[in-house]
Design a protein around this nucleic acid. Structure first.
Lengths: 125, 125
DNA sequence: CGTAATGTACTAATGTTATAGTACAAGCAG
DNA sequence: CTGCTTGTACTATAACATTAGTACATTACG
């Protein structure tokens, strides 16, 4: 079973954190096609979150064609490929991501070279 | 003048985005000690945001000892050093950051080696 | 002093987020 | 069919976020 995590103290809404975590898990391959997600009620307990919130996220992801739900059975990953926008758009988004990442790390006192080292470690796994 | 940016379509509240952007700018050195920030009204116009929202962020950052405000003059960076938590805590936070960064990038279709390359480019600047 | 610029402090209104609780619908196993 | 598990739908409530608008306090400057 995949293991998502949300931070109730974060200013980012829980539903947005969870939506993002699921999409990312699929994008990284942590969740492959046809993989089963935790049940609404189970995940709500695990995350210490209201079941409605989890249900809303699942419903939204199904509307987007990313998940498939079968009542009485469970919720599953439906699609692997996420259509990407234009190259220019991707580049712009990536630059924003990097700026945010570097800024976040700087807040913790980490420098750029340290970050590169850490990512290299990640690569070996 | 520093140039912050917030995304009104993001689920993360504007005040949280701005708070974060300012802290990060200070942490990365983009904003040094005694640097002046835009005025409440000016920044509100630039970001297309309500002045109250900006004022709230400035007030909060002053309460945290990060900014210093002088009425009729402006708002300035007060402190450079942000006290860091324990080593274990920093490591844990960093791992979360990396996971999020890699996940975000994967959503855009970027792989780990590509990210490392991009960060190396960042390093040269 | 008088004016402009700055941060600060309210109120009111509107929309979003999260929760609790309850009930219903659909599929599976016995 | 019966009972269990699953996703879904609805109401109601509370808290938070954002905006608009107005007014005030403090400082700098001519």
């Amino acid at each position: 079973m995949p293991t998502f995590s949300v931070d109730p103290r974060s200013p980012t809404p829980i539903y947005a954190q969870l939506d993002h975590a699921i999409r990312a898990a699929i994008a990284t391959g942590e969740l492959g096609t046809n993989a089963q997600l935790p049940t609404v009620r189970q995940l709500a307990v695990d995350l210490a979150v209201n079941a409605n919130t989890v249900a809303r996220v699942y419903a939204q992801l199904e509307r987007d064609g990313i998940l498939e739900t079968r009542r009485g059975v469970g919720t599953f990953v439906r699609v692997a490929p996420t259509p990407h926008a234009t190259r220019a758009h991707r580049e712009r988004e990536l630059r924003a991501l990097i700026k945010k990442f570097v800024g976040d790390a700087a807040l913790l006192g980490f420098t750029l070279p340290e970050l590169i080292d850490q990512l290299r470690n990640e690569e070996k796994k």
